[in-house]
């Protein structure tokens, strides 16, 4: 069977839609479905975890964004909500759980403590930001952030997922290039973590030459 010029199939959106065919890029449909079914890890660290539970509660209802399936196992989750203070004793556990999550995986640093140490930054036992060991996608400030803020962070993450390129030459999400990302787990030796940060994901900010003894 051969097609002549007159019998060529009409591929205009109007006629394909009539025939029940939707044309879309694979990226678009993949990102759309992924961003609307983010499964967070049921993983609470401190005060922010209570607000995380509050967000899953009836009033704020995270299910509206397709993220209500809190999984206790890292093997089944896409999103790690680092909800609260990460202490030096807990940081190895957090990195290990991150390593156990399958790709694609995302991280929201929830609350001032997870971002930078927050009010406890001066403490001897508090990690000054989880982004020293694992890459963070969305930073969510607040102490603790309101449930609305967490929903906004989730929407920001959804926007990020919708814009990612998973095919072709310009892949934006490293998960689709390198396979599963596994970062070295720090060891608590003495009174500090070894190494103090992971140079792959974080470098210390440049010192301000105008300040003689700038703080860390």
């Amino acid at each position: 069977m051969s097609f002549t010029q007159e019998e060529e199939i009409d591929l205009s959106p109007e006629s394909t839609a009539k025939a029940g065919v939707i044309l879309s890029s694979l990226d678009w449909i993949y990102n759309w479905s992924q961003s609307n079914s983010v499964w967070p890890l049921q993983f609470g660290l401190a005060c922010c975890a209570i607000e995380m539970i509050g967000t899953a509660g009836s009033r704020h209802d995270i299910a509206r964004f397709g993220a209500e399936v809190f999984r206790p196992s890292p093997r089944q989750s896409d999103l790690m909500l680092v909800s609260g203070t990460v202490t030096k004793k807990m940081a190895p556990q957090v990195v290990r759980i991150y390593n156990q999550m399958p790709e694609p995986k995302y991280v929201i640093a929830m609350g001032a403590c997870a971002i930078s140490g927050g009010p406890f930054k001066q403490g001897y036992n508090v990690l000054k930001g989880i982004d020293r060991y694992i890459p963070v996608d969305v930073y969510l400030p607040g102490c603790p952030p309101r449930p609305e803020a967490l929903l906004h962070a989730l929407m920001t993450l959804q926007k990020k997922i919708k814009n990612q390129k998973t095919l072709g030459k310009n892949i934006t999400n490293p998960a689709y290039k390198e396979g599963r990302r596994i970062y070295p787990v720090p060891v608590l030796s003495g009174d500090d973590l070894d190494p103090p940060y992971n140079p792959e994901v974080w470098t210390p900010p440049a010192k301000n030459p105008n300040v003689e003894d700038g703080c860390e």
Partner: peptide, 30 residues
């Protein structure tokens, strides 16, 4: 335990009395 040791007692020694009030909120955060 000790996975959430946030040095409340040590931090309070370095700040004036009223400054510790917000830290007490975070002790039992419920």
């Amino acid at each position: 335990f000790g996975y959430l040791h946030r040095n409340h007692e040590k931090l309070a020694e370095d700040i004036p009395y009223p400054g510790s009030m917000p830290f007490t909120d975070r002790l039992d955060y419920l």
